[in-house]
Amino acid sequence: MTFDLADVPLWAAILGSIFMVIGALLTLVGAIGLVRLPTFYERIHAPTLGTSWGTGGMILGSMIIFTATTARPVLHEILIAIFVTLTTPVTLMMLGRSALYRDRSEGNPEVPPEPNIKDAVDVKSGD
């Protein structure tokens, strides 16, 4: 299933372009944040911009363009959106946990200490 860019109806081209540009710019902002933000735990927030509305905008834009041009609903892009929404939190959580683990085992005072069964506050004041 292929089509030429000139076959796209004008309203779909404009609407889809708006969504795709918003999505791509949000992804770019996420990447800027990845470079600009000073610590790892702040940087971990940056890619979620690209994976929430960045991906959502791109997928929505391409769905609008394909659906309007082929005159039947093209929905399988939504699988990408669902997949990215479900997998990104898992990767970021694992990465955050391993970073927390590494920082804790190195005794980095900036991260919250390992919660002790006796009392978590004691450990913190001991730092």
Binding site: L34, F66, T88
Partner: peptide, 30 residues
């Protein structure tokens, strides 16, 4: 640190995926 590099790799994968979506629209092919 290593975790920063892995985070960047993850973001790079997402960008590559979105780049492919844009290619798909440009070529009009699913």
């Amino acid at each position: 640190r290593a975790q920063d590099r892995i985070l960047a790799l993850d973001a790079l994968y997402i960008c590559a995926m979105l780049q492919l979506v844009a290619f798909g629209v440009r070529s009009g092919s699913t």
